[in-house]
């Protein structure tokens, strides 16, 4: 592509590529472009050093990652390669030792703890390998708690929780406790909970790892539907190669480096 063939559908990208070279790779400068580019997740030079042992260990070494809105991004790699660490950083749960992360056009690495917490509340849904449901609460109540945290209460919360559980196909299991649900059903409760407040981003760590292949498949289908119908961006850390079929992009992490 050259300057004489400016792409009408994406003028910004075209301009950027043809006319500019960015003076410095900082996200404050990049932010403008990324927003126009409809990037949901942008990471630049992310480094993470853990200092819990005798000597510091560099777990992530200069990660650059761009994930467009509405896409399903897989993050794969061997055990201990730093996938969960990267996911935690991209979700604003861990602060990287260096580099910056921009979510939905906002640089989360510059936010205060409080701002980060608010940002997660409004924009991110989480799904975990271990489901992390309150064991004493029913499926319905587990979803209601997330609604309560987001300021929805009473009958509205109950109605919304019903609706979300129906969306994940659990209308007949609303009043079951987690211990009376199968692994796949539990993960669907967790997905319903992650959908509370209709977040733009879904972050999932090994969502199918605790499931058999049948329920794993159901969960995969569900995640794909959610991403495609809701225009959500989904970042999935996984070892599960079946997920590659539904993914738009796959990144491999090895020894703290993306390949």
């Amino acid at each position: 592509m050259t300057a004489s063939h400016i792409n009408i559908a994406n003028p910004v990208r075209a301009l950027k590529r043809s006319a500019f070279t960015l003076p410095e790779r900082t996200l404050s400068n990049l932010g403008v472009w990324e927003r126009f580019d409809r990037k949901a997740i942008v990471a630049r030079d992310v480094e993470m050093v853990f200092r819990s042992g005798t000597e510091p260990s560099l777990v992530l070494k200069g990660i650059d990652l761009d994930i467009p809105q509405g896409e399903i991004q897989l993050l794969m790699g061997p055990s201990g390669s730093g996938k969960t660490t990267l996911l935690s950083i991209l979700a604003g749960i861990l602060t990287p030792t260096a580099g910056s992360v921009c979510l939905l056009g906002q640089e989360i690495t510059r936010m205060s703890k409080q701002q980060l917490s608010n940002f997660r509340l409004n924009n991110i849904g989480f799904i975990f390998q271990g489901f992390n449901l309150f064991p004493a609460l029913t499926a319905l109540e587990n979803v209601e708690v997330a609604l309560k945290v987001k300021g929805v209460r009473g009958t509205v919360a109950r109605r919304d929780a019903h609706e979300l559980l129906s969306q994940v196909g659990l209308e007949d299991r609303m009043n079951y406790l987690p211990r009376d649900l199968s692994g796949g059903q539990k993960q669907r409760v967790a997905i319903a909970r992650a959908l509370v407040g209709n977040p733009k981003l879904i972050m999932a760590d090994e969502p199918t790892a605790s499931l058999d292949s049948h329920s794993g498949h159901a969960v995969i289908e569900l995640l794909r539907d959610l991403a495609k119908k809701g225009g959500r961006t989904v970042l999935i850390v996984t070892h599960d190669s079946r997920l590659i079929d539904v993914a738009d992009r796959v990144a491999y992490l090895e020894d703290g480096i993306l390949t």
Binding site: S117, F119, F126, N132, V145, A146
Partner: peptide
Amino acid sequence: DHIKEFGTLKAMGASDWV
């Protein structure tokens, strides 16, 4: 016993006060 669930609430963005 429920530290993970409380952690989950915090990860979801619940304020400490919740």
